[in-house]
Simulated scan of single mutants.
Amino acid sequence: MSVHKASGLWCRVRKGKRYYFERVVDDPEGTKSLDQWLEILAGREPKRSGGDLSLKDLCNHWMDHKKAKLDAGDLVQDTYNEYFHACELVMESINKELEVDRIQPSDFSRLRAKLAKRFGPVTLGKHIGQIRSLFNFGKKAGLLEREVNFGLDFEKPAAKRLRKQRALRGQQDFTAAEIKQLLAKANTNWRAMILLGVQAGFGNRDVAELTEAVIDFSTGWIDYPREKTAVARRVPLWPETVEALRNALNQHPGGSKYLFVGDRGRDYTSEKHTGNNRITGAFKPVLKAAGFPETGRGFYCLRRTFQTQAEECGDLVAVKSIMGHTPSENDMSARYRQRVSDQRLKRCVDTVHDWLFKQESDHE
């Protein structure tokens, strides 16, 4: 048993994990702390005197809970990474050794102020929701005797502010001419990724984690459950998209199971705990080469473009199916619907194809 000087707590390290016990001032001989250590060795969860639980301990319990859900298939890796990042954010602002029952509303106010300087209102709201879930978990799991007092300030941004932010961002889709402009400047990989975005609503993660195994080049279909939502996704591909995917596959350097690999031999996935991938940053030079600002619109705007144009087919169910949207729990039609016919899916993507290429063919 040793003393952790920064916190003034008795501690012990086992298999690379540090365990914290009583305050030295409250347990000068370490007797209570030793008893708690023996509880750990016996496979039981110890509890400090007075029910004290440090912020770091709470985060560890929460992530253990999320890891179990990840291992069971109830949580995807990106979401797990986002929860991990939320723990990092809160421990950057609040002393991780501080007992949770000593955290004050003023601590949450300072935390929110720091987050607001780093993130826009949408991301800020997401992080606040995740952090509140962390502390609410502590109460529900029986780790805390009472609910945490977040105070008056630790709330998500108001809906009005979010609407203003969306208005300031301006147009979040691409015109047909702009997409052709992007395709004209795109290399082999990016041509395929852009076409997947505009003809199938593929987002950043969808293209970053795409594998050859889910593409049937002979029939021109992609058929797989979307990783983010586990919703079945069956997509008829345009001839232009099939050709672009073949070209990307032919130039694949090897070394990655994913289809798209950058110039330096790295794919576009990320091992960082932010839940992000490398598509966002890598798309900026593509925008610049095509004459667009590097900020304002990103790769995900191609998904918005598909949604906007595909709805013109009049079959919103087919659009949602191709997008891989998660149906609402109250959507009984989605529960009973077993499939969407290939004819409906083709009509959906053909609507977008006509929008993008019909004007061009009419002049030929």
Rank of each mutant, 00 (worst) to 15 (best):
S2D: 13
V3Y: 13
H4P: 00
H4M: 05
G8I: 05
L9I: 03
R14K: 13
R18Y: 02
V24R: 00
E29T: 11
G30P: 04
E39L: 13
I40L: 15
R48Q: 06
N60W: 07
W62N: 02
D64C: 05
K69V: 02
L89K: 13
V90I: 12
L98R: 14
D107H: 15
A116P: 08
T123D: 15
K126C: 10
G129D: 03
S133Y: 12
S133R: 15
A141Y: 08
G142W: 09
L143E: 07
L144A: 07
V148T: 13
G151N: 07
D153V: 15
F154N: 01
A158E: 14
K160P: 01
L162T: 05
Q165C: 09
L168E: 14
G170V: 07
G170L: 08
E178S: 13
I179N: 02
K180R: 15
Q181H: 10
A186S: 08
W190S: 02
I194M: 15
L196N: 01
Q199E: 13
A208E: 02
V214N: 00
I215F: 07
D216V: 10
D216C: 02
F217I: 02
P225R: 11
A230Q: 12
V235K: 01
L237W: 04
P239S: 12
V242R: 02
V242I: 12
A244V: 06
A244R: 10
A244Y: 06
N250G: 14
N250M: 13
H252N: 11
Y258C: 06
K272V: 14
H273E: 10
T280P: 03
P285G: 10
V286S: 05
A290T: 11
F292L: 15
R297K: 07
F299I: 00
Q309W: 12
E311Q: 12
G314H: 03
T326R: 15
R337W: 11
D342R: 07
Q343T: 15
K346P: 00
F357H: 04
D362A: 10
